[in-house]
């Protein structure tokens, strides 16, 4: 199944038959509800996931349908309930653990990195950990340094983990269903500023495979590789660039682990110029890895070094005027693209 051409950001005229416009938050909730109906082993646990439906209200209604035995409110103990998720997963259940803010992953690092990621390998392939950790990333919510980080690069660095970064309601639903059916620990990052983003999602059942990048917009002069909400930034930049006569291709890897290297490299070979945009810190981050992959794979086709745009390497500040300076914007992408294409 392929996405209809109507872009999630454009004002979609009439949804094609069988498709409707929903928010990214609704898409997440639908994916969870459908998987819980399909498979009684799927259960949710985390802080305020039941009656509260999380502070983002993404899970509203689930406890009413599935009961408190499958939508489990936990104490504020990220390490403890993530570890419980690992134990559930090792013994026949398919838990989805909710880490409210991605920043709180730091509290559960041992359970994710030393336990979940390694159990299958350390046991010689005997034990499996079909665990999903749903969490958030993204700044500009005026939440300051401990509620705004995008830490997905850390987990992309660890063999044994898969990392998913949906950028549209359609991708969020299809990828989350795949995550729940995967036999490995999966970190599923939702940009908390995108929960109200609307987009077309089909009525019926579908899944999206991991490791398959999506070309969100085709172009010929420049490739913009972007993740999560930065896809929307890249698409906005591409629209502006079109006015300047620059044709930008926007590619969303959708999963950083596994990474669809081939699609990224092919696009770079076609356009010869690449910008990588990601909301994680720029240093030692996702942008660095993707730039290296493209440089190695398309070196002789490139007209310029691969450019990177990540979050500013500072703790996220509270004051809006400062915070807005820390994240990549369409304007910044446009400026970088103009430089790269010799239009300055």
């Amino acid at each position: 199944m392929s996405m209809p051409s109507a872009s999630s950001t454009a004002s979609a005229p009439q949804a094609p038959a069988g498709w409707r416009e929903i928010t990214l938050g609704q898409a997440i909730r639908e994916a969870l509800a459908e998987e819980m109906r399909r498979d009684s082993r799927v259960l949710l646990l985390g802080e305020d996931v039941a009656e509260a439906g999380t502070p983002f209200k993404v899970l509203s209604g689930l406890v009413e349908e599935f009961g408190a035995e499958r939508v489990i409110d936990t104490p504020i103990s990220e390490a403890g309930f993530t570890g419980i998720g690992v134990g559930l997963a090792m013994t026949g259940m398919r838990p989805v653990v909710d880490i409210m803010f991605g920043d709180f992953l730091t509290l559960a690092m041992d359970q994710i990195v030393n336990q979940a990621a390694k159990v299958h390998y350390m046991s010689g392939g005997k034990l499996k950990v079909p665990l999903v950790v749903r969490t958030t990333l993204g700044a500009t919510r005026r939440s300051a340094a401990q509620h705004s980080q995008s830490l997905h690069a850390w987990f992309s660095h660890i063999p044994g983990l898969k990392v998913v970064l949906p950028s549209t309601p359609y991708d969020a639903k299809g990828l989350l269903k795949t995550a729940i059916r995967d036999d490995n620990p999966v970190l599923f990052f939702e940009d908390k500023m995108m929960y109200q983003l609307r987009g077309l999602v089909p009525e019926g059942e579908y899944t999206i495979p991991f490791g398959v990048a999506d070309i969100k917009r085709e172009g010929s002069d420049l490739t913009i590789v972007a993740t999560s909400s930065m896809v929307q930034v890249a698409l906005a930049a591409a629209t502006e660039l079109e006015q300047l006569g620059i044709s930008a291709e926007v590619i969303d890897p959708r999963t950083t682990s596994p990474l669809d290297k081939q699609t990224l490299i092919e696009s770079a070979k076609k356009t010869s110029r690449v910008i990588v945009v990601d909301e994680g810190y720029q240093s030692y981050g996702v942008t660095a890895e993707i730039a290296a992959v493209i440089s190695e794979g398309a070196f002789y086709y490139l007209d310029a070094p691969v450019k990177r745009l990540g979050a500013l390497d500072v703790p996220v500040p509270f004051s809006p005027v400062l915070e807005d300076l820390t994240v990549p914007t369409p304007a910044a992408v446009v400026e970088m693209a103009k430089t790269l294409c010799g239009r300055v």
Binding site: G87, Q115, S123
Partner: peptide, 30 residues
């Protein structure tokens, strides 16, 4: 680790299996 004998694995992180054991118990109950 030895699934056949119910051994979910030795753990080289001190205390590291407290969550796993407790999660396995929730699984048994569920």
């Amino acid at each position: 680790a030895d699934q056949e004998s119910g051994n979910l694995g030795a753990n080289a992180i001190v205390g590291g299996s407290a969550g796993i054991a407790t999660g396995a118990a929730l699984s048994c109950k569920r």
